[in-house]
Simulated scan of single mutants.
Amino acid sequence: MSWDYEKFVQLSDAEEYFEFFQLPYDQKVINVNRLHILKKFSEFIQQIDENNPELSNSEKLSIYRDALEQAYQIFLESTPLEQKLFKVFKQKPKNVITLTELSSD
């Protein structure tokens, strides 16, 4: 399949990526996990580009398609909290004592 790389770099919405690559998706899943899917997809793209600088644009797009499918699949089987893609999920809350930190004397 042949995709237009110039068109790809202009995409921004999750639905646009799925439609560009002609991948099926559930709108409810996209609505709930949109930012997480796009963040994971972005991480995959960065890894692909760093590890495969010799690939042509059409070869990259083929691999990007698989990466988008994989990012989507992750959030069918996992939650954003489990994936911890964003800083807010990685930070320990301040002024909070967890039950595991309490001890009975």
Rank of each mutant, 00 (worst) to 15 (best):
P80N: 14
K90I: 05
F44E: 06
D4M: 01
L81D: 15
Y72A: 02
N95L: 11
Y5L: 08
E54F: 08
K87I: 08
I63N: 06
A67S: 03
S78P: 01
F41T: 01
N33K: 00
K84G: 15
H36S: 09
N57L: 08
Q10T: 10
I74G: 05
S56F: 02
V32P: 02
Q22N: 12
L61M: 14
S103H: 11
F89I: 09
H36I: 02
S56P: 03
L99A: 11
L38P: 02
D13F: 07
K87E: 09
L102K: 10
V32G: 08
K60I: 04
V96I: 10
N95Q: 08
I48Y: 03
E54W: 08
D66P: 04
R34A: 09
Q47R: 07
V96K: 10
T100G: 14
D4A: 05
L81P: 04
L35T: 09
F44G: 02
N57R: 04
L102Y: 02
E69V: 04
S56T: 05
K39T: 06
P80C: 12
L55W: 01
L35H: 14
T98M: 08
I63P: 02
D13N: 06
K39S: 08
F89K: 14
V88N: 09
Y25M: 11
V29W: 02
D26G: 10
E43M: 13
F20E: 07
E77A: 15
L55P: 01
A71V: 03
E15L: 12
Q22Y: 14
N95I: 06
E50K: 13
D49Q: 13
S78F: 06
P24Y: 15
D4G: 12
E82W: 07
T100A: 12
L102D: 00
I97Y: 05
F20G: 04
L38N: 07
L68P: 02
K94L: 13
Y17Q: 00
S56A: 03
E54G: 07
E77L: 15
L85G: 01
I37H: 03
D66N: 12
Q91R: 09
Y5H: 11
E50F: 13
T100R: 10
Q46D: 12
L76Q: 11
P93A: 09
N33S: 04
M1E: 15
F8Q: 14
S12A: 10
D105I: 09
F21M: 03
E43C: 15
L23W: 04
P80L: 13
Y17M: 03
S42C: 08
L11H: 08
E16W: 02
V32I: 10
Q10W: 06
N52G: 03
